[in-house]
Amino acid sequence: MRIGELSRRTGVPVPTIKYYVREGLLPPGELSSPNQARYDETHERRLRLIRALLDVGGLKVAAIAEVLQAVDEPGRPVHDVLGAAANRLGPPQPDDGDDDARSEARDTVQELIARRGWRVSTDNPAATDLAHALVALDRLGHAAFAELLDDYADAAEQVARADLDYVNRRVAVEDLVETVVIGTVLGEAVFNALRRLAHVDRSAQQFGD
């Protein structure tokens, strides 16, 4: 297909496609004449992934390039490729300025990971995000919320199994990464909405007339 058709099929404007090619995010098309290039389904799949990383994941071009480098690295385990994408999705956490509280929260998170037997590195960004959340809870007078971590972990494991079972339906690595990005960002929105609905039901059971 020519670049115009690729644009129509993906919804990505032609100038944007050319920009992605210049930045090395998208491989150039195969030249069919000095001024014409042809594109195929691999370009369409890569464009879909780029847009998912950009529009859904909110990644910058430099971060997208790093994820695509992981996707294209021969023999790289799928687990590492998915991690390269997922680890860049979390929002940057501000410095809370409380070294003691942060250290205690990190210890709590590491104890949780060890207790659950999770195969997660100690510097995983999600572990840092959880530690920051615990520090914020403590500052607001809700340090006891940490007592619920295992209950939340039980639910998280069940959701993670469902997520990865869905991801596993895909074949191409790019499709896997796209699914992880969309599932992480929009899946969190789905889960949060379900949680709020469950809150309403539980509140009605406990406090309703």
Results as ranks from 00 to 15, higher is better:
A198K: 07
L197D: 08
R22S: 06
D95F: 04
G24F: 07
D123K: 11
L149S: 07
R76A: 00
I3A: 03
S33A: 12
N192K: 14
A70N: 03
V190L: 12
T122W: 06
R115V: 11
E73G: 00
Y152V: 15
Y39I: 12
A198R: 02
A86C: 07
V190I: 12
V190K: 00
A198P: 02
L6I: 04
D80G: 03
G29L: 09
R8D: 15
G187M: 08
A204V: 13
F145H: 14
I17M: 09
E5Y: 02
A155F: 11
L112I: 11
D138Y: 02
D165G: 11
A143E: 08
T108F: 02
R88Q: 09
G75P: 01
Y39H: 09
E178R: 13
I182N: 07
R46E: 01
G90A: 13
A162H: 09
D100L: 13
A70G: 01
L31G: 06
L186K: 08
E178Q: 12
H132I: 15
V135G: 04
V71Y: 01
A105S: 05
R169M: 13
D138F: 01
S7Q: 05
I17D: 05
L176P: 02
S203W: 12
L134R: 07
F207I: 07
R46K: 05
L89Y: 05
L89I: 08
G57M: 01
R116E: 12
L130I: 06
Q36R: 13
A193T: 15
R106D: 10
V56M: 07
E30D: 15
T42F: 08
P91C: 07
R2K: 13
R45D: 14
L82W: 02
D99S: 14
D175F: 00
N168T: 14
A86H: 04
E73S: 02
A160F: 03
R116H: 04
S203Y: 13
P92V: 11
V21A: 09
A155Q: 14
D40C: 04
G83S: 01
R196T: 15
D55E: 12
V200K: 13
L176M: 11
A70F: 00
I182Q: 10
S103M: 12
R195Q: 02
R170T: 14
L148D: 14
H199V: 15
L59S: 09
